[in-house]
Design a binder for these strands. Structure first.
Lengths: 127, 127
DNA sequence: TCCATTAGTTCACAAGTTCGGAACTCATGA
DNA sequence: TCATGAGTTCCGAACTTGTGAACTAATGGA
């Protein structure tokens, strides 16, 4: 297997970061890796937000995140271990990742509130 | 001419913003509109970073920025006047736009430093 | 009023990108 | 040595993007 490519932090670009995170699946994966609340391997994301993701697609998404400089992937036996490059990114673009993450969680929260309201309204009209 | 579409601030998504700004031309246009240091009409961007941009392409880029909720366009006679939706965006995603803009200017500055170093080195080797 | 000019949009198509199934590689354990 | 499980690669279909040509719309003379 070909060795994994990781850009040097100096070659990481703002456009690259924004493009990588402009895909909702990649944003969700990255947020989960940053939170660190689940095993950060490819196969732990076979479903994202209730939606099944084919593993070829997942593999491409991880590659995109690696090549944008957002995560570092290390093969550990048969699995891949992914870690965020938070410290380096913070040095390169101070405050950027924190702002994007907090915008993401704000949006998640707001969407779940909207969904609650919608289902309450639906129940009210069918009763 | 069809009226311009602007999303309500509640319909503006993080993915949409990141996608719109992941294009270097759109990022440059948006940064200039935010700085407000040049007439923010389409035709003032016929060249971006020394590169000529066809006007049909520019028109699409402005449409993308409008539909992502980043700018507001108003026809003023034959011209279009574009303004950033900073205040609304700040309310919707606090700190996000500031972090992206400052990352952009940091990168610009660093690139111009790199270019200077390169040309100095070139001169030194040819002497 | 008519025409030329200027600003921006729309359309169609070529070029590029992304998605996902099938076939692959590679490490591991039986 | 073989089966298995985790990821990757390949490739066609579907989607997206960039651009020239043709368009619309407002404006300012003649």
């Amino acid at each position: 297997m070909r060795p994994l490519f990781h850009p040097s932090i100096d070659d990481v670009t703002l456009e690259g970061i924004l493009h990588a995170l402009s895909d909702p699946v990649r944003m969700a994966i990255f947020a989960d890796i940053v939170k660190g609340d689940c095993a950060p391997s490819c196969s732990s994301f076979l479903r994202v937000n209730e939606k099944a993701i084919p593993k070829s697609t997942l593999s491409q998404h991880f590659k995109a995140l690696r090549e944008a400089g957002l995560i570092r992937g290390q093969r550990q036996g048969v699995e891949m271990h992914n870690t965020p490059r938070c410290a380096e990114l913070q040095e390169r673009f101070p405050g950027l990742m924190a702002a994007i993450s907090s915008a993401y969680f704000l949006q998640l929260q707001r969407n779940s509130e909207k969904a609650k309201k919608r289902s309450r309204r639906r129940r009210a009209t069918t009763e």
